[in-house]
């Protein structure tokens, strides 16, 4: 893909499109989070968030995701300066931390199911699993994206001229991270 075009704003079109996409995603998660809040405390039976949410464990996974954002920043910097080794290390680290987060989520979901909370149990279950599931889906897409970039790097096709590809993946990754901070605050901390 060439970027010989001079655009009207000077911004790369793909980046601009991606910002628009993120704006749209804000409304998507906004609707999910609003629904969670509207339905908070309206379940007619348990388990309730208070009984089941494990803040210490989720704090660890939140920290893990935050660290992945840091790794993402370092990955972009490495790609931009043409440092292939560190680019691979940090891309792999970001994807790995993303996978760890998904692991935490899988653990959380299964333990909730064992404790009697499924997506059909009550309103809390429906809103919680849908909201965090949507987020988890976004993380999963991000991991696949990062692994794709990693493969491209090993193929020698991720030079500094392709830094924008990594930057856009980074935008996505940071966005997903920020959304998690909001979810963590709204769902876990503000019970």
């Amino acid at each position: 893909m060439t970027h010989a075009h001079v655009t009207s704003t000077g911004l790369d079109s793909r980046k601009l499109a991606f910002w628009t996409f993120i704006g749209s995603e804000c409304l998507l998660f906004g609707s999910l989070i609003s629904t969670y809040l509207v339905y908070k405390g309206r379940s007619v039976r348990g388990p309730t968030p208070h009984e089941i949410l494990n803040i210490p464990v989720t704090s660890v996974s939140t920290f893990d995701l935050l660290m992945s954002s840091l790794a993402m920043v370092l990955a972009l910097a490495a790609v931009a300066r043409g440092d292939r080794v560190w680019a691979r290390v940090w891309l792999a680290a970001t994807a790995f931390l993303g996978l760890v987060f998904l692991g935490f989520q899988a653990y959380e979901f299964t333990s909730f199911v064992h404790e009697g909370l499924t997506i059909t149990t009550n309103l809390f279950g429906s809103t919680f699993f849908t909201l965090t599931g949507f987020h988890g889906g976004h993380v999963a897409v991000g991991v696949v994206w990062l692994l794709t970039l990693l493969v491209r790097s090993f193929q020698g096709k991720l030079g500094p001229d392709k830094a924008l590809n990594v930057e856009i993946a980074g935008l996505y990754w940071h966005f997903v991270d920020v959304v998690w901070i909001v979810i963590f605050t709204v769902v876990y901390l503000l019970q």
Partner: peptide, 17 residues
């Protein structure tokens, strides 16, 4: 989700609005 998986978003009996 309500139709396919039995969630409660639009289920009055589950407290849905």
């Amino acid at each position: 989700f309500d139709r396919f998986f039995g969630t409660n978003f639009y289920q009055v009996s589950a407290g849905g609005d």
